[in-house]
Every structure is written in structure tokens, then in C-alpha cells.
Simulated scan of single mutants.
Amino acid sequence: MTGIDSVQLEKVIVHKIGNPSRGEDLHLSENPLTLNDEIVRGLLTKYFLGAFNENELFHFTHISDLQMNEVYRYVAAIFEDRESFMEQAAYIARFLYTKSTHVKVKEGELYVVQFDNVPFEGEYIPAIGIFKSETKESFLRVFPHGKSYEVLHEEGVNINKMDKGCLVFRTNTVEGFKVCVVDSTNKNNDAQYWVEEFLQITPYADSYHNTDKVLNLCKQFITQEYPEKFDVSKSDQIDLLNRSMDYFKSKEQFSLQEFAEEVMHHQEVVDTFMDYKKNFESAKNFELNDEFAIHINAVKKQQRVFKTVLKLDKNFHIYIHGRRDLIEKGVDEMTGKKYYKIFFDEES
């Protein structure tokens, strides 16, 4: 998140959250942090807010009634009555403790934070932050000792790396607020307790969400399903990745039918892609729109993970940006080694 210089850090309380399945305890603080040092306030603000992508928005949900979503209810109570902050923060901590039983959930500090003047969608509004630090890093502290220096080892939190975070903006209350989320320690879906069991949030079905998820669908299809179902080389996969990204970069609107015709070309590939899309939606438990406005920020985000590098053993990396017809693959009869022949006009 950018433009956070105006943010006011109103209250911060820290609770210790263990894993009950390992016999670790819950330790609740009796008082919020004393924040008299402006440098510390600035560092905390950067730590809490720096990792969020305000374009990727979620909202609280529940299968039967939104009011039964515990975190939504506790946060709404703080927005309604600022004096209830301590009480509701304790409820949040107790609830997280009950959801921290997965074997991979680590003990850590829970921060509940009351913000004001947070920039969001052209306004400056109140927000509630819920953060958990699980990863400790080693630091060396050098200090003078007489006429010499000594070094001590300490463990602490890296303020440039947020483990888990949730930022709730005071807007869209009836729909479950607008929420940003970070979960950098469970990118492989090993222990999705933070998003699925604790927060119980779901993405807003907006242009950012649709663009991001369809590009993610394309990447997974091309790198996993496409080579499994068809006899294609790595360069063919990269070519299809490039054509997919070029479509999103050159269009303002996404059309599934148009995308299939312009990018996939062959009907058997299109049919396989459509089947993969259905399975993808079922596994992720959401439905992707067949038509939507393309969000340029989502395209830029996904472009960073669209790998278009052809790696040949440990000797060569070939960056392919287009023109699959200028690459020829073969096998040398004398050595039995594979080769790529690349045609070009000028060397630069």
C-alpha cells in the first residue's frame, strides 16, 4: 500500500497465540502498546500496511448469515464503539487460538490495530488491522563495552516481511466490508486457516479478481495440463504463455470465446481448456465470468510470474518474447543431443 504517511496509528495491542494441539498457550495483554516514539510508530505503520495490494479486495462471508462470521462481528463492534477495542481484540485473539490447531500453524504474536485516516479509493477512512507474525529472524547487535565492542545475538521480526495480515476498511458494511489480506507463509495451501477458517473471506467478483484469476488459470493450464494432454515442447508452452499475456495487454475487455479463438486456435486445445476451467472453478469454489473488463494492475501482477525463459541444462537461458515460427527444434544425429535453431535478422 502506498501513500501511508497520513495514516494515524490510534491503538495497538499484542497478544501471544500458540497452537493448542501442541499444548501452547494463549497469552492476552492487559494494555495496548505505549506509542510515544514517532520512529517506532512510523516503523510499525510501514510493517502493518506495506505489504497490502489495495486492488485485490475481499469481503467477510458466511454460509448462512454474515452476522455469524466472528471476525466480521468483532470488527463491526469496534467500528461502532471505539471504546470496545480492548474487549473485541481479546475476542479476536481467542477465536484465532481455536483455529490454530493445524500441525503447520506456528506460535506467534497477534497485533490488533486501530487506524484512522487510511487512504482508500480516493478517501481517508478508519480501518482495523489484524496481523500475525510467525517467522523470527536472527539479528546481531553491536554495542560498546569499555574500549572495545561486543556482539549479541537477538531474534526479532523483520519489518519488511509481513507473515499474515488483514486490513478491514470501514466501508460496504452490509456486504461484509472491504478487506485486503496477506498470507505469505502459506502460498502452497498447506494451512489455509488464516483465510478460510479464521477470516472466512471471499474475493469481490470485480474486474481485478476476474483478470487475476483467469490469468492464473491460463498459466496453470499451459504449464501443467497442456503438455500433459498434447505433444508440445517447452518453447510451444512459452509461445502460448506469450500469446495469452499479449491478449490481456492489448485488450480492454475479455471475452472467453474470443480468447479461445485468437490464442488457443485448435479446437481440441480449446475443448481441453474449457474442461480445465470447469475443474479449476470447482476446486477453487468460485465461478469466473466469461466476459469482463480487463484490469491493468492485475495484468502487471501476473506478468511477473509468467515465466517465458527456456532453460537448457545449466548452460543456456533463452528468453522468448514471440515468433515461435523462428525457433526450430531437432536432434543432432552424431551426438544424440537436442538443439534449438533460432533465426534472426540483426544482432544487438
Rank of each mutant, 00 (worst) to 15 (best):
M1D: 03
G3A: 08
V7W: 00
V12H: 00
K16D: 07
P20R: 09
L26Q: 04
E30Y: 04
N31A: 10
E38C: 07
V40E: 06
T45S: 02
Y47K: 06
Y47H: 15
L49W: 02
F58R: 01
F58P: 03
D65Y: 10
R73T: 12
Y74P: 07
V75T: 14
I92H: 00
A93T: 11
R94T: 13
L96F: 09
Y97I: 14
Y97Q: 04
T98E: 03
K99L: 05
V105R: 03
F115K: 02
E121N: 14
E121Y: 12
G122H: 07
G129R: 02
G129H: 04
G129I: 10
S138E: 10
F139I: 04
P144R: 11
V151Y: 04
E155I: 14
G165R: 02
T171K: 12
T173P: 00
V179K: 00
N188D: 07
N189L: 08
N189P: 00
D190Y: 11
D190F: 11
D190P: 05
Y193W: 13
L199R: 13
P203N: 05
A205Q: 12
A205L: 14
S207R: 12
V214C: 02
D231I: 09
V232H: 01
S235M: 06
Q237G: 05
M245Q: 04
K249P: 03
S250M: 05
K251E: 07
Q253S: 13
L256A: 09
E261C: 08
M264T: 12
D271T: 14
K278F: 10
N279M: 10
K284F: 02
K284E: 07
E287C: 07
E291T: 15
F292W: 14
V299W: 01
T308F: 01
K311P: 06
Y319L: 15
Y319F: 14
G322I: 11
G322Q: 07
R323Y: 07
R324K: 15
V331H: 12
K337V: 14
K338G: 13
D345G: 08
E346P: 01
